[in-house]
Amino acid sequence: MRVGMVCPYTWDVPGGVMAHVRDLAEALIADGHHVSVIAPAADDAPLPFYVTSAGRAVPVPFNGSVARLAFGFLSANRVRKWLREGRFDVLHVHEPAVPSVGLLACWAARGPIVATFHASFQRSRAMSVSAPVLHTALEKISGRIAVSDAARKTLVEHMGGDAVLIPNGVTVGRYADAEPLPGWGPDGGVIGFLGRMDEPRKGLPILLDAFTRIAPDRPGLRLLIAGPGDAGDVLAKVPAALRDRVGILGMVSEQDKARAYHSVDVFCAPNTHGESFGIVLAEAMAAGAPVLASDIPAFNKVLGEGKAGALFVTGDAASLAREAAALIDDPARRATLSAEARLAVRKYDWSTVARDVVRVYETVTAVAAGGVEEEQATRVPEGARATGGEAR
């Protein structure tokens, strides 16, 4: 099957949706499908052979974060060219409601179109205002996937319709075995964090607060942080006496990310909101790292209501400190959680998830008259033209 896949967020910066698209594409290619991905990216960015650049992205505030999107005439022209040359059997658009390449692809194409919805949020004024514009694109979608109950609820409440539930995937084998990073554990006293350091909803300040509460009584306790952001700003939030016990890696490669998961005794995900699944949890679980996470609904479900990982009260540094201290002081419980996590994560392996996605492809192509074609006259709504910018 020839699959055209659209990633709305820049390929240059790691993120959950980008990782989902990358791993799904590679799983499908490994199964013998032809896959081509289009995504925002700098023209000189090193891209995998299956990725086409839709143009350089611009940062836009979205869902409590800063998303890097491409939405303008240059990107629209590249999308149309990609569609013409791809001759796809099915078009798979991720986050079609985001003002980026996926929305442009929906406007520019007709035929079998599948969309995956990732985001979870309670209210969105921007979504309400832009609903008429989005409808012109979303009405073309013939198959809908939500990665979680939270993402499905967001879809139903904000855009109508329903979706089949297919969770995020993780390449379990990529994380199952790796050597720890030089100078790090697990040695009974390492707590780990992976995420954007400067993004409040990722919850790093809550973890830093908890660490300063429990570290003085545990001289061997250390904190390992990976992800983009300003290391100086992070260390400024830690008492001077504890700063030498905080390691900041910055952005890491996929290989070093796997090694980081194997370097910790407890992996902490203190996210406060806006997570519909929690791919970092699945990755840590695949590595066998004991997980401690905030009890937001998405994390609660992935961790089996606390069976495959410990939970603390969202946003509560004191609760996080108590649970982290209990885990650090209890090697037997950490071992139990590690074993449960390795078992629970198997259902999220791409070998299983990709097959479920292909079934959706087969359903929408079976009822279509042909493959994906370019719309000969694409009418971009006036409201959308006003929002279209392009990085130069």
Rank of each mutant, 00 (worst) to 15 (best):
H34S: 13
P182D: 13
P48E: 08
L281W: 02
I29Q: 11
A318C: 08
S253N: 10
M18W: 02
T171I: 06
V353Q: 03
M1D: 09
G111T: 05
P14M: 09
A324V: 10
L24S: 03
S124E: 09
E199H: 08
G72R: 05
D330S: 14
R144L: 08
V353K: 00
R333A: 10
P46E: 13
G189Y: 01
E26M: 13
E340T: 05
G229V: 12
A269N: 04
R80Q: 10
P297S: 04
P48M: 04
V51P: 00
A241V: 14
S36C: 10
V66P: 00
R80N: 02
A146R: 01
A215K: 00
K307R: 15
G160P: 08
V98W: 04
A284F: 03
G55N: 09
F193M: 08
M127I: 07
L343S: 13
D177F: 07
V357C: 06
G185P: 05
K81L: 12
G173D: 14
M5F: 13
V357K: 00
P132Y: 11
M1V: 14
I225L: 15
L242E: 12
G160C: 11
G173I: 06
G189V: 00
T136L: 14
P219A: 11
D198Q: 14
G371H: 12
L69S: 00
K301P: 00
G143H: 06
F49G: 15
R245C: 09
A310G: 06
G111L: 10
I29S: 06
K307S: 13
L83M: 09
L28N: 03
P270I: 01
T272C: 03
K347A: 15
T378N: 05
K153M: 05
G169C: 10
S294H: 09
E390M: 14
G278L: 07
S351H: 14
A105Y: 10
G192F: 00
P59V: 07
H135E: 15
M285C: 05
C268H: 02
G161P: 10
S36Y: 01
G306S: 09
R110C: 08
A241W: 01
I141D: 01
W82R: 04
L134G: 01
L337P: 01
V90Y: 04
A293D: 02
A231Q: 11
D349G: 04
P331F: 03
Y361P: 04
D256Y: 02
A119H: 11
V360M: 06
K140D: 09
L223R: 04
G55C: 06
V252R: 05
T365A: 05
G111W: 13
T352H: 13
F299D: 00
E283A: 12
S148F: 11
K81V: 12
V266F: 02
D356A: 15
V234C: 07
G192N: 05
